[in-house]
Design a binder for these strands. Structure first.
Length: 430
RNA sequence: UCCGGCGUAGCUCAGCUGGCAGAGCGGGUGACUGUUAAUCACUUGGUCGUUGGUUCAAGUCCAACCGCCGGAGCCA
């Protein structure tokens, strides 16, 4: 008999098939058992009628536990009462693997309990929907880069030094020296951009920051494009087109999952190109008008980002922050030496920063001075300054945090649900 | 690191001015031919986070510690 996936069940109406899956839930009513079977592609109700199956099969179905794995055979039939449109009229059931007292019941659970059981929680409909959307977003990212002729260049995970200061790095032994887990692939992408033109990396990054907020993980995934012969203006255009492309893909392909998550889809459909652009100066004035006590020269706080982004339906691009609050590699604005040619993209609905990027300092003398001013070890960055000695060109790029984009598109309060196995200040298990 | 809050059954929680440890869900048994987090009956289940203190008596009051949650800073 043919084994089929639940998502394909409509192609087999009135045919006998075998389904392989796990028992999601069960209800009984005298001479009937209703088995909700889950196989990762969908959930279907399998109806076991006492008159249709052997007595020992009916008895067995009364005692199978939640998440018991089953091979169920029967006939596919259309049924208006089913959310799927079809159910299975069961002929035989075989237990593949027993399960009893499964910890995650259909009732409510707390965050800590669910995260302690993340390896099992993945089976539930909500994590399932989120991770399907994450998968779609990752694919959209790669498709966009592929279509725009970006070359995938994988950045190293072990690095000899920080790119933005050492306080937030995970340190590890590397034979007879120290190594750090990467907090960005950007510097390596700059080298690669000089070789390939347009490049990107996509992988995990690590921050040892002891931050406990809904927007932070110690291990998170970032996609970092870098473009040679590119200025801030073009950088912002690529960034907005990229985010819009991802959004459209999710709306097109993952509507069912958004519904499971009860996402306000209309809010996502309001996003249009081009995204509003605000200079840092304008943002500060705007925030002060809205009642914030923020002063020129400081970075935007979480509350400020929320207040600002709630003024718009689309993500916004805030550009040209004060040089002093930004990393050493940011290029100075030739029109105002207090400013950096950088940009942050803030997602709407208060989701905050999803992209940070900008034009890089391409002058050898200025970059060397900046490294010293930031008290960074020059030896560790010697290779990086070489890029300014041998055919330096204007170049720019950005980094997008995948988890924050997933949180925004899914409408989630906390990024811990956007990654299969979150790593946080208080969590390294499972 | 700082500021708040919470630790009671497998889970979610109630437990008042200190006086016999509780509910719902889950697990088990049974009833029911159409259930949708099924329903109904019975039943099972406890080192009240840890240590110390006050008291005739502490889940309850006090102290310290541990764990977790929320927020801030920093960032994607």
């Amino acid at each position: 008999m043919k084994s089929v996936r639940i998502s394909q069940i409509g192609d087999f109406e009135d045919q006998e098939v075998q389904l392989n899956g796990w028992l999601y839930n069960k209800r009984s009513s005298g001479k009937l058992h209703f088995l909700q079977l889950r196989d990762g592609s969908g959930i279907i109700q399998c109806v076991v009628f006492k008159g249709d199956v052997a007595p020992e099969i009916f008895e067995l179905c009364g005692h199978v536990g939640q998440e018991c794995s089953l091979a169920v055979a029967g006939s596919v039939r259309k049924d208006e009462r089913s959310p799927l449109g079809y159910e299975l009229g069961v002929k035989t059931v075989e237990v593949v693997g027993e399960s009893s007292e499964y910890p995650i019941t259909p009732k409510e659970h707390g965050v800590s309990f669910l995260l302690d059981h993340r390896h099992l929680w993945l089976r539930s409909s909500r994590p399932h929907a989120i991770l399907k959307i994450r998968s779609e977003i990752c694919k959209a990212c790669r498709d966009f880069m592929e279509e725009r002729d970006f070359t995938l260049i994988d950045a190293p995970i072990f690095t000899p030094a920080a790119c933005e200061g050492t306080s937030t790095l995970f340190e590890t032994d590397y034979f007879d020296q120290k190594a750090f887990l990467t907090q960005s692939g950007q510097l390596y992408m700059e080298a690669a951009a000089m070789a390939f033109g347009n490049v990107y990396c996509f992988g995990p990054t690590f921050r040892a920051e002891k931050s406990k907020t809904r927007r932070h993980l110690t291990e998170f995934w970032m996609i970092e494009p870098e473009m040679a012969f590119c200025d801030l203006k073009k950088d912002m255009e690529v960034a907005e087109e990229f985010v819009y492309y991802i959004l459209k893909r999710v709306l097109e392909k993952r509507r069912e999952e958004l519904k499971v998550l009860e996402r306000d889809i209309e809010a996502l459909e309001k996003v249009t190109l081009p995204f509003p652009r605000l200079s840092y100066d304008e943002a500060i004035n705007r925030l002060q008008d809205l009642g914030s006590d923020i002063k020129w020269g400081t970075d935007l706080g979480g509350d400020d980002e929320t207040i600002l982004s709630k003024q718009y339906d689309s993500p916004i691009l805030v550009h040209r922050y004060p040089l002093d609050v930004k990393a050493f590699y940011m290029k100075e604005d030739p029109e105002d030496s207090r400013l950096a040619l950088c940009v942050d993209m803030l997602a709407p609905e208060g989701y905050g920063e999803i992209i940070g990027g900008g034009q890089r300092e391409d002058d050898f003398a200025i970059l060397t001075r900046k490294i010293n001013e930031h008290e960074l070890p020059f030896e560790a960055f010697k290779w990086y300054t070489d890029l300014r000695k041998y055919g330096s060109v204007p170049h720019a790029g950005f980094g997008m945090g995948i988890e924050r984009v997933v949180a925004w598109l899914c409408g989630l309060k906390h990024v811990r649900e956007t990654i299969p196995f979150p790593r946080m200040l208080q969590r390294l298990y499972p």
